[in-house]
């Protein structure tokens, strides 16, 4: 088995193995597609799902000798292989984006200059990102960067990061507006929620500690210092409630994982081809 997966001895043999592997895979996929009907495909998908889950679960629960069992040595290569396979899916979302914006530009739909801007930004980041990756400056960086590295820095630190931060910082305004317009003490539960929110909000900031700084830390009333009260709410009211939710999530996730592992789920990604 280890001889089968040994590295190719020469570059020419490597090229041959790569071509054979590629062509062989395509032929295998073709044969599977032609040979398997809907029931066979469903069966194959169920078997692959089951074996993938069984591998990881079994390696963990199977008894060990000298801290390993017969599957332990396979964990690292299989995990790396699955991670690398997952990396190839990066194009899925990008293909979708390019399709949508490409149609906008090709058909000159309203707002097509924005779609063109999307492509310009996409290609600029791709080109200068890869160019900068292949012209590393080392550490310490020189005072004058190569111009392509400079452009990449401007794209990343000058546009990409600020745009993302600014977009998410808009939430501060929305939460202020929503707090004023929508947070109403209509019920006792809402009032409880609001009081807890006030105490935690003040307890987390220096002004809260300042407001109740008159209560000595050693006095029995120190519990009512805002920062102490806020910590107490987070540790002894919020924490057990969150733990209850964690237990609920744990059981639900276990049930869901079992259903997925045993291919009992039905839905968009699990249903058979029509």
């Amino acid at each position: 088995m280890s001889r089968l997966f040994a590295p190719a001895p020469t570059p020419r043999l490597l090229a041959a193995y790569l071509v054979i592997g590629l062509v062989g895979s395509v032929i295998l996929i073709y044969l599977l597609h032609r040979g398997l009907g809907p029931r066979g495909r469903r069966w194959l998908i169920a078997v692959v799902t089951f074996v993938a889950g069984l591998f990881y679960g079994l390696e963990f629960y199977y008894p060990v000798h000298n801290r390993k069992n017969f599957l332990t040595d396979w964990i690292e290569p299989v995990s790396v292989m699955i991670a690398v396979i997952g990396a190839f899916t990066v194009g899925l979302g990008i293909y979708s984006l390019c399709q949508v914006h490409g149609r906008n530009v090709a058909r000159r739909r309203p707002g097509w200059p924005n779609s063109l801007a999307f492509f310009v930004a996409f290609l600029a980041m791709l080109v200068f990102g890869l160019w900068s990756h292949y012209t590393p400056v080392g550490e310490p960086a020189p005072k004058v960067l190569p111009w392509q590295n400079g452009v990449y820095e401007v794209l990343f630190n000058g546009l990409f990061a600020p745009l993302q931060t600014a977009t998410f910082s808009l939430l501060a305004f929305y939460i202020a507006s929503a707090a004023y317009r929508a947070f109403r003490m209509r019920t006792a539960e809402a009032a409880l929620m609001m009081i807890a929110a006030f105490i935690v909000m003040l307890g987390q900031v220096p002004v809260g500690a300042w407001i109740t700084s008159g209560i000595p830390l050693t006095s029995p009333w120190a519990f009512f210092r805002l920062e102490t009260l806020g910590e107490w709410i987070l540790n002894w009211l919020n924490m057990p409630a969150q733990r209850g939710i964690v237990f609920g999530i744990a059981v639900g996730a276990l049930a869901m994982s079992l259903r997925v592992w045993l291919s009992l789920e039905r839905g968009t990604f699990f249903s058979e081809q029509r």
Partner: peptide
């Protein structure tokens, strides 16, 4: 940020109180 946060929190609390 925390120096500023204090007053922003007070503002939010005041807004909620006024709203109610």
């Amino acid at each position: 940020i925390m120096n500023v946060q204090s007053w922003a929190h007070l503002l939010i609390i005041v807004l909620i109180v006024i709203g109610n």
